[in-house]
């Protein structure tokens, strides 16, 4: 929780955007499965998938350091 607060407070990009946009794009829905994805880690470029975390609760944070 400390990290979540910290991240949201320190990101310079604290703007709110509508998720339920008419345009195509990222639109997770409460009660539905989150689509799986695989992206490289910023540390070693190794692939990490959301599905690797199945069986654990995940707080997924999209952010930028600016």
């Amino acid at each position: 929780m400390r990290n979540l607060n910290l991240l949201i407070l320190t990101c310079g990009c604290l703007c709110i955007f509508p998720l339920s946009s008419h345009a195509a794009g990222y639109s997770p829905r409460v009660g539905q499965s989150h689509p799986d994805f695989t992206l490289p880690s910023i540390v070693d470029r190794e692939p990490i998938s959301l599905s690797q975390f199945r069986g654990r609760k995940v707080l997924l944070i999209h952010f930028a350091s600016w």
């Binding site: 979540l4 794009g25 409460v30 009660g31 539905q32 989150h34 609760k57």
Partner: peptide, 21 residues
């Protein structure tokens, strides 16, 4: 991921179901 802005925080349960945005 085609996100349209940041930050976005999504809470996902053990089964991969979105519980909170």
């Amino acid at each position: 991921m085609q996100v349209r802005g940041v930050p976005i925080v999504v809470a996902i349960d053990e089964r991969g179901i979105v519980r909170n945005i």
